[in-house]
Design a protein around this nucleic acid. Sequence first.
RNA 1: GCGCCUGUAGCUCAGCUGGAUAGAGCAACGGACUUCUAAUCCGUGGGCCGCAGGUUCGAAUCCUGCCAGGCGCGCCA
Length: 599
Amino acid sequence: MDHVIAERVQRVIKEWCAEQGWTDAPVCLVERPAEETHGDYATPFCMQASKIARQSPRALAEQLSARLLADPDVARVVETVKVAGPGFINFTLSSTAYAEAMRMMLAEGDDIGRGEHHPHPRVNVEFVSVNPNGPLHVGHGRYAAYGDALQRLMKFSGVNLATEFYINDYGRQMDRFGRSIAARYAQSFGVDLPVPPEGYLGDYVVDIATEARAEVGDRYLEALRLAAAERRVAVGGAPSVSVQAPDMAVGDGVYDEETPDDQTEWSDDPAVKEAVAFFRAWGCRSMLDAIRTELEEYGVEFDVWFSETTLHEGGRLERVIDRLLDSGEAYRRDDAVWLRTTSRGDDKDRVLIRANGHPTYFAADIAYHENKLERGFDHLINIWGADHHGYVPRMEAAVEILSGRPGALEVIIGQLVNLLEEGELRQMSTRRGEMVTLGELVEAIGVDAARFFLVSRSQDQTLDLDIDLARRQSQENPVYYVQYAHARIAGIVRNVPEDFEAAVPDDPAVFASPYERALIKRLDGFAGMVQDAAERRAPHRIVGYAQELAADFHVFYKHCRVIGVDPAEASSRLALCLVARRVIARCLELLGVNAPESM
RNA sequence: GCGCCUGUAGCUCAGCUGGAUAGAGCAACGGACUUCUAAUCCGUGGGCCGCAGGUUCGAAUCCUGCCAGGCGCGCCA
């Protein structure tokens, strides 16, 4: 309907401009006015063209509206043409336009709104990508809901796309996690081996240690006794570090390098190292299983799970760094290897290999993104939390160097979730184990409400989530409003007599009410909304659209009966219901929310 | 200090590649169920769109400055 009317109006106006001899006339926009009394469509063309025409916008509009009405193609779908306001031309649609639009939408079936599939470019969307050393928290839930809705939306709009989870299973944080589990394991045997000061103190660490003990018994007990003994010597008899959490948030400025615990480790004894390696691997597998299961229950699945460790083990890092050195994009200075990211807009060059010989996280990320490009992806989308936005310029520069073209990497920064409980801001820390997990949120309000709510706001907006409200809201959450519309339609369809057929008869009396027309117009806007939301990476628009659609349906439902009216009206309304049901179901599917048949 | 994000109704937020009288949900108040599900519908009240300039026929939207909040700025991950 949008295109049908826009094209016809634009053609007439273009012809008219040509007759006037204007070569640089402005583009004629045809849009839906915000105010319903202004008609179904409107164009501000005359205001824009009045300068060239050397006439007032209104005078121009009078001439053009007469011309438009005289055109048979326009007259078919347009009921009235009016000049209004400062010089708008407003149109209202004819009943023929509604009937034609409905026939087209009905014929599209389940594919209504689906974009044409484009095999190129191949797009990779990476999101969530956490260290597997703790449960997912609410912020991850937001990025998961956003990323998954975005990938579903982009696929539906026609993009060739695969999703990916990067497992940060390498490095110091994982070592600390391994030693935290080892300490809990040792403690379960009564050994005084405290959790490291930079370790993880959540109860789930104890659970993992318990599982490990059930599996391996006391196999690592002696090694950890040794670690406890050596450690006591190393700290010179000072009281061992309390098992209680230090009052310290993540990222409070304490440099990791200066943490003595990391420098001394527990012991150089091979048996101790082996024990720590075991608990690190055990914990990683255990957490990863838990995360995968939790995401599945949350309705989020990935095409590829990519382990950072495989980059280090396969010699990939060395290869890519050699390549960068050969090409001159990287260089050596002060015993370190640097990447010349300043050549691509970064503030300063970045270290790839530290003076101590260890690669940085950045180096691993470069190897990883090179791998994505080698796997044939043309466009890489990464969804990161706001706390990583300082990392964006160097990564964009790196991918530009790797791919040879700017813009191959698109980083979408998601803002954080502030949790409010009893009106108080709740600080979160993975290591202290003090946080609201995604699991707790889902338990409180359910998957449907959690996903619907967490994706309902623009991702670049910080989101205040009041836990108490979320708990209470379970009955009045907007998600139920949309689901209820779906269930109501399902009810109608169930109750329709067998011989009923959905169809749009050629009868001017069909779709005469404003309630039916509003619903048809809304449904007609679905395809445009999909394309727009996909291009803008804005799945929250689906939420707004779905609520508006549901509202239009509930009004229709109140005023227009389907069963028990005359046959032409009944079959046309049934057609309207079927299309509405498909579109609501599609919106909910794109959001990862259930579309219930009854409630 | 520099960079990114954000300031819109009592609350949570849409609208931001410029269009007419700025919207929704929640909260408040008043109505509507003999008929396909009342988790619904109808109505009422509620706004210097952070502030000040600029561009434009037209600015919540674009530009500049200021104010306020969040995040970031390491040879950490």
